[in-house]
Amino acid sequence: MSDPAMIPPETAALASDVLLSVEGLKVHYPVWQGWRGKSMAVKAVDGVDLTLRPGECLGLVGESGCGKSSIAQALLGLVPITAGRIRLDGHEITGPAKVPPLQLARSAQMVFQDPMSSLNPRQTIGEILSGPLRLHGMGSRSERESRVAEMLGMVGMAPAVASRYPHEFSGGQRQRLCIARALILRPKLVICDEPVSALDVSIRAQIINLLLELKVRLGIALLLISHDLGVVEHMSDRIAVMYLGRIVETGGWRQIFTAPSHPYTQALISAIPDPMHRDRVPARLGGEIPSALAPPPGCAFNPRCPLAFDRCRAGEGPAFTHIGPDHQARCHLLQAGTSHV
C-alpha cells in the first residue's frame, strides 16, 4: 500500500473526485449443457474498467447481448460478480466488506426501460413513491408526503396525482413517475437502462431534457445504457463502447462521434442516419456476434472485422492504446501505428 504522504496532491484530488470505480469486473453465468450436465459459463462481462464522476453522464453503448445490463445489475448488487472490484461513493460494493443492500440503495437507483411493468398497478402513486422512504425509515408520515409532493413537482407532475394509479397515465407520464421514484432517496448515481426506447418519439425529448435538468439541479451522476446513439450523443459527457463483454473504446462524446478509432465504433457511428448525407454508405459488418459461451481467441471482434490480420486472431486480445486525453481503444492496428479511420 502506498504511503499517503507520497501521493501527489493532484492525484489524491482526482481519486476523491471519483464517484464510481469499476476494476476488472467479470460477470459469468453458469450453464449446463448436454445430458451429462457439462458446466460452462456465459461470459456476459469479462474484465471491465469504468470510472464515473459526480454530475457526469457516461453513455454505455453496444449491441444487444454485449453485457450492458449485466454491468448495471452488478452495480446494484442484483447479480453476483465472478471477479473484480466495485466502489461507489467511497464504499465497497463487492467483497466481504461490501455495504448492506439498503445502504447501497441510498447511493444508487435505476430507471427501467418499460415504465408500466416497473410500477405496481395495485398501488397508488403516493404509495409507490413513499415506499422507499418507509422501507428506510425516513421521516414521519407528513414528511414523507411532503417529499413525495416535492419529487412530483421536480418531474413536472402535480402533487394531486399521488392518489391515482399507474394505468391512469400515459407512457411519458409513467416514466416521469419512475424517475421520481428513483430520486426519492436522493441517490448520487442513477442508472438509466434504455429510459426512452419504449416511448413515443414526440415524448422522448421531454424525458431526455428532464433527466439532464435533474442531473444539473441535483448534482447526480448518470449511467446511460442505450441503443439510440442520438440519445447517447445528446446526453453523455463520456462514452464507453462495449462488445462481447469488454469495453473496446472510451472517450468524450465529441471524440467518439467525430473521430472513432475502433472498427466496431466506426461501424456504429456510420450506421446513424444522416439526412444531410443521404448517399453515405454505412459500414457493413459480416458474420454474426460470437457466442459469449466461447468467445473467439484474440480480439473478440476479429471474426467480423474487415481489417483483421493474424495478430488479431491469437493471444489474449489487444490492450488499450491511448489516442488522446481521455480517449483510448483496444485495437492492434492502433498499437502498430496504422491508421484505419
Rank of each mutant, 00 (worst) to 15 (best):
A283G: 03
P325D: 15
S107Q: 15
L199N: 01
K188S: 13
K43C: 01
A105K: 13
Q255F: 04
S142Q: 15
M157W: 08
S117T: 13
L135W: 08
S236T: 03
L218Q: 07
R106S: 05
Q113N: 02
V201Q: 10
A160L: 11
P273I: 06
L211F: 00
M242G: 01
C66A: 08
V42E: 08
E145T: 13
R87L: 13
L224M: 10
P296F: 02
I239M: 09
G298R: 02
F301Y: 15
I128M: 02
I71P: 01
L52C: 02
I256P: 00
G139H: 13
L19I: 05
E127P: 04
G65V: 05
D46W: 00
D193K: 07
E127G: 14
G59S: 01
M276W: 08
R147I: 12
G245S: 01
D193F: 13
A108S: 05
R85E: 14
D114H: 07
P290W: 08
T82W: 07
S236P: 05
R330E: 10
E150P: 03
Q255Y: 10
G337L: 00
S130V: 09
V99I: 15
I184C: 04
G230A: 02
S140E: 11
L293I: 04
Q255W: 03
P30N: 08
D237W: 06
S197R: 08
A271K: 07
V281K: 11
V341P: 05
A108F: 02
Q173D: 08
G47I: 09
R186H: 10
P260G: 03
G67T: 09
H167P: 03
V196M: 00
P296R: 14
K38N: 02
A198Y: 03
I269R: 03
I269D: 04
V79Q: 12
R330A: 12
Q33F: 09
G126F: 11
S261M: 14
D228S: 06
C178V: 08
D326V: 13
R330N: 13
S69V: 04
L307Q: 10
R278E: 06
